[in-house]
Design a protein around this nucleic acid. Structure first.
Lengths: 341, 341
DNA sequence: TTAATTTGTTCAAACGTTGGAACAAATCTA
DNA sequence: TAGATTTGTTCCAACGTTTGAACAAATTAA
């Protein structure tokens, strides 16, 4: 039969004929407890199969050792490797990680925040949903004094720590590459510009076009949810233009895939007729034919930095929180979809 | 300035000049508390922006309202939609979900279990890592009386609730389809047979071959980690055989993708020369060219059932736990990679 | 009118752990 | 040898909530 009843610090104390607080101190390696009792306590704890009650500790200490992570959707390599890294770093320090998905919905995101605050997490590491424009819930987190770290999808106005890549620069890198490959008319399939990262990529795209003296017009730029279907449909419109573009820069690999599919369907040669570059280097991008060139965002690095920033915040709770941006350099992985030479 | 100090039940009691226990009862809608005080308490709670301290409740009640979910890797549509559904169902009932990834590693999985037990979760819903053969840690969960529900990657020997599809039947469906398409020599790229689901698929494959009087030999079957590279390498070996197979059944879409890539590289026509069927219907499977036929596992349904089973367990804690398998029917999505007619 | 019941609240202990204050015993200092 | 210091432990209150028992007041029953 399983020994259902859990043993507590009290049980250990009873066995040894000492007080619970002595046991507690022994377990926490308090300097004033003799080595002798410490080893005795360890021994008995082992025998009784003692497991500390984390909840009691949390109540007493006023911290839960839980960190909440909010992501739009786990269903991408980018986010799942960030999480993996965050877990690595935080588990090391005795924290557990609660992951919730917003599914790109503002409402679900608010619920997640509520739930995490309710669970008394010691901090929240989040990437905002596409839909999110109102910052009220995030402000609530800040107000409660719960450390908040944003990554990838952030927002300057919140004035908190942020980890991400340089989106503006990414666009410049992509456009330069396409220009180098001989593209003269480059379209952009972007995310919605109310999300900061997509806005920056759009800005970067427009500025880079100007820099290289390329034509820009409204018919060359689209904003969407960046799902595969979105890429496909927008590609359709782009192919219907009187003058087709000869290069496409897409802000997400799923959408790029959709675009690629449509081009194949219409027998457009990639990259000869139209060169294609995606974003975030999903595993399938290297798999499809032709492989899709894409921007690698160094997700592990982002995860590591986000976790470490949280730890730093916890260590210095009095330090005032300000906008603290950690910006990593993007890297373009060139594949067949844009390699003409 | 933010009002840092959190208000407690005591504060409400002080304002109203009643005792904390009256407040607690009012908040919990105790029948013996007058409607009058109830509304008064609600009012004050609202004013003070009172947030119940979940940890204190957890300590007092002996339950955390946290449910742990262990998955091999979030990086697949299958797992991320299961999680989404589990969250849906459990949030509804006031539970929060802690997600951890084992990354297919036994060691990481054990750590996850430790961490979840340490966090005092009220139950664990898990899908086992590929690597896992020893069940000691899962037995520990059972022994502690923490409800354990397995999905997809389960193990009969644990004698707990299990939700998954009929893997044996899946193989039969796939083989029948390939036979219908005229395949005479079908190979299988499977997962490691020490994992129950992969063993069942292998058994199904072998039995189905026999049923249709098709040749079987050791050179036609491989076990691997089902990553893209694995599929690619094994495909290489299959193409080097003196007599090539004319149909390939792969136990995972990533590996199927690798196999497809290799066939394209060697100018094998798919499905004319070799027909291909994958498993788990990842989003990219319909995207690539040719689209990969695949088994749809009804992930939302699996998630829903797993969560509901947990709730049932919690509601009837005294009911003895036994092997309780809930098996869903798989569905083959036929795409270009295997459609010859 | 008295006893029994119902209603609304308070009391007190508990959940398991922690940590500062208090205290006795042992050791050191001058 | 008295006083100061160190060492090892106990004491006690606290973290915020819950809950059964107790109790007084109000209501009902007989």
């Amino acid at each position: 039969m399983a020994n259902k009843k859990k043993s507590t610090i009290k049980d250990i104390a009873n066995v040894l004929g000492i007080t619970p607080s002595a046991v507690s101190k022994a377990l926490n390696n308090h300097p004033r407890i003799s080595q002798q009792t410490k080893t005795a306590v360890m021994q008995v704890a082992e025998n009784l199969n003692y497991q500390p009650n984390h909840i009691a500790t949390a109540l007493r200490k006023g911290k839960s050792n839980l960190v909440g992570v909010i992501i739009p959707r786990a269903n991408s390599n980018f986010f799942s490797s960030i999480i993996e890294k965050i877990e690595d770093v935080l588990n090391e320090k005795g924290y557990n990680v609660i992951i919730t998905q917003s599914n790109e919905s503002y409402k679900k995101e608010c619920q997640s925040i509520e739930a995490l605050l309710f669970t008394q997490v010691d901090g929240i590491i989040a990437s905002m949903a596409n839909e999110t424009v109102k910052l009220d819930y995030y402000n609530k987190v800040k107000q409660k004094g719960v450390p908040l770290i944003l990554f990838d999808r952030g927002e300057n106005d919140l004035n908190v720590d942020y980890v991400g890549i340089d989106d503006y620069m990414s666009s410049h890198i992509v456009i330069k590459h396409l220009v180098d490959q001989g593209c003269k008319r480059i379209a952009h399939i972007g995310g919605f510009s109310h999300t900061r990262i997509y806005k920056n990529r759009i800005r970067g795209y427009i500025d880079a076009l100007e820099k290289y003296n390329l034509p820009f017009s409204d018919e060359l730029i689209y904003e969407c949810n960046l799902r595969k279907v979105d890429g496909k449909e927008i590609m359709k419109k782009l192919l219907d233009l009187p003058i087709r573009p000869d290069g496409i820069y897409v802000s997400g690999d799923y959408a790029a895939l959709g675009a690629l599919e449509e081009m194949k369907a219409q027998h457009v040669k990639v990259p000869e007729d139209i060169a294609l570059v995606g974003f975030s280097n999903e595993p399938f991008s290297e798999i499809v034919t032709p492989g899709i060139s894409s921007i690698e965002q160094h997700s592990e690095e982002i995860g590591r930095l986000a976790a470490e920033t949280f730890l730093k915040r916890i260590a210095n709770p009095d330090e005032p929180v300000t906008l603290n941006k950690m910006i990593l350099d993007p890297e373009l992985i060139v594949r067949a979809s844009s390699k003409r030479k």
